[in-house]
């Protein structure tokens, strides 16, 4: 997350300064909305999460102790809101869904071995490619999805991701690895096809 040019004053926030709160909203609404949209995939849901995040931040800023950075604190609220909304919308949760780690390695070992990484850059910038990437993220279990978004899309460190999600660094790393490998599998299926198509066109 980009810290705003003039540092936002936590003191002013805690004393109820509305102008400072507005500056915080300006600085962080973009990244928080993006996190919510990547997490939920539906703009209306993302907007709910965005609004609830800042409403809660407004209510609780008095208690913000500054042990983590302001951005990590906001990501923490937003992550909770997003996960709560996902679980609320899916009431038929089974035990295996909420167990912290599903430890079978079936979703872990690579099965796709096509080297698509040298595809022309234009392939990766197409809108079809973008929507494949977004839906691949949507297919991740939510506890991996949130870790991947915070770490690899929003660019938090492993430690900050752990702070935002109340997870140990080891747990963050495990989920991150699984998420990355799963996404690689899914992208390999799509880009592998694109690669084959390109080769066929070159021959034919």
């Amino acid at each position: 997350m980009v810290e705003s040019k003039t540092e936002i004053s936590v003191e002013a926030l805690r004393s109820g300064n509305r102008e400072e709160f507005a500056r915080m909203v300006d600085a962080y609404s973009g990244p928080i909305y993006r996190l919510a949209l990547k997490m939920l995939g539906i703009p209306a849901d993302a907007e709910d999460v965005l609004q609830n995040t800042f409403l809660k931040a407004f209510q609780h800023v008095k208690d913000f102790e500054g042990r983590s950075s302001l951005s990590t604190w906001l990501y923490r609220i937003a992550s909770n809101e997003a996960l709560m909304l996902i679980r609320k919308k899916r009431p038929e949760v089974t035990l295996s869904d909420i167990s912290p780690e599903n430890d079978d390695n079936s979703d872990y070992s690579p099965a796709q071995f096509i080297d698509w990484h040298p595809l022309p850059e234009a392939e990766f910038l197409s809108s079809e490619s973008q929507s494949i990437m977004d839906s691949a993220v949507q297919h991740l279990p939510e506890n991996q999805r949130i870790v991947f978004i915070l770490r690899d899309i929003e660019g938090l460190s492993i430690q900050e991701t752990g702070e935002a999600l109340n997870l140990s660094e080891a747990a963050v790393k495990t989920r991150l690895l699984r998420a990355r490998l799963r996404l690689r599998e899914e992208l390999s299926v799509y880009y592998g096809e694109r690669l084959k198509k390109g080769e066929k066109n070159e021959r034919g």
């Binding site: 980009v2 609404s29 973009g30 990244p31 909305y33 993006r34 965005l50 690579p110 796709q112 071995f113 096509i114 080297d115 698509w116 990484h117 990766f124 973008q130 990437m133 993220v137 991947f148 690899d152 899309i153 929003e154 660019g155 990355r180 490998l181 996404l183 690689r184 992208l187 390999s188």
Partner: peptide, 26 residues
């Protein structure tokens, strides 16, 4: 095989990383 996994994993991560570099405003 591992060579391909490493290269495509790197590419996967960088694609997602780059996709977030623009549109920071809602």
């Amino acid at each position: 095989d591992c060579h391909i996994v490493v290269d495509t994993l790197r590419k996967t991560i960088s694609l997602y990383h780059d996709s977030a570099s623009g549109n920071l405003e809602c």
